[in-house]
Design a protein around this nucleic acid. Structure first.
Ligand SMILES: [Zn+2]
Ligand SMILES: [Zn+2]
Ligand SMILES: [Zn+2]
Ligand SMILES: [Zn+2]
Lengths: 138, 138
DNA sequence: ATTTAAATGCAACATTGTTGCGTTATTAAA
DNA sequence: TTTAATAACGCAACAATGTTGCATTTAAAT
């Protein structure tokens, strides 16, 4: 299936109109080899109005089409959701890794199962953010 | 040892002057039963200039006296560092838990050991952010 | 008490978040 | 294909926060 057709399907599934702006943003996010920083989105989408970028990102986040991958919280990174997510539930089974050298952030599947238990607490979601040095920078 | 004396020691250790503002901020952060949201700091420290709050937080973060506990990234939370940390290395062995009901964020020690391995990657730090429902809200 | 370097407050500007509203575009229905 | 309803977009405007420079005040060493 064509990638654009897939995007249109993703959007219509959430009752979001498949507009050129949204398709372009999705194309940029998906084409980036890792999670894309907000500043990079601004650069690549200069012709977007600031508010349009803001609202488009919110719509896609809320629809569970993209997700934030904010490791170390200085800049926000965005990446496509791999599974079917919604605003209430992002079903990510992966962790986020940020290389402290090249600052690249990527979604990584690990074989390790993360088992966390907290007494008297009903755990709904566990987010893991890993930092270190990637293979390219080693 | 007096708690204020401990704060003075923490600050001098990092070559930071033990000023009344810094001691007051530390007292507020330490007295809060969980990680304190930025908005709460603003409320409790209204007499602080905006820039002073900004720079004081940065100085204490950089010195490894407090740390950010930003779960789900809508608001930033701050908490005392339990171990001896520095700007380069926050040695936290705990996870951050946010209750989706009362929005309280706390630093929690877990007995579970988090074992993460990523092929061809040299891991330096693993941050775990857990959300769910706390005992009070269950 | 004096001195030096750091901390603070204020002003100023940059960036980002956020909302309302008129215009434009999508999409479903006719 | 045309039309109509509704959502998306661009622009303006304002709020909140980030960030820096500089003059004044303060901490702490001498
Ligand atoms: Zn790297
Ligand atoms: Zn991810
Ligand atoms: Zn709760
Ligand atoms: Zn903590």
């Amino acid at each position: 299936m064509n990638v654009e057709t897939k995007f249109i399907e993703l959007l219509r599934d959430r009752n979001l109109k498949a507009t050129p702006k949204r398709l372009e943003l999705l194309t940029v996010v998906a084409a980036f080899n890792s999670a894309i920083p907000y500043s990079e989105l601004q650069k690549k989408l200069k012709h977007f109005d600031r508010v349009t970028l803001y609202r488009t990102l919110h719509a896609l986040l809320d629809g569970g089409i993209i997700h934030k991958a904010s490791v170390s919280s200085d800049e926000v990174y965005y990446a496509m959701c791999k599974e079917y997510c919604t605003s209430e539930c992002h079903n990510h089974k992966h962790v986020h890794f940020k290389c402290v050298e090249c600052l690249e952030v990527s979604c990584v599947n690990t074989t390790n199962t993360i088992q966390i238990q907290i007494p008297n607490v009903q755990i709904q979601q566990v987010d893991v953010e890993v930092s270190g040095v990637c293979s390219k920078c080693m």
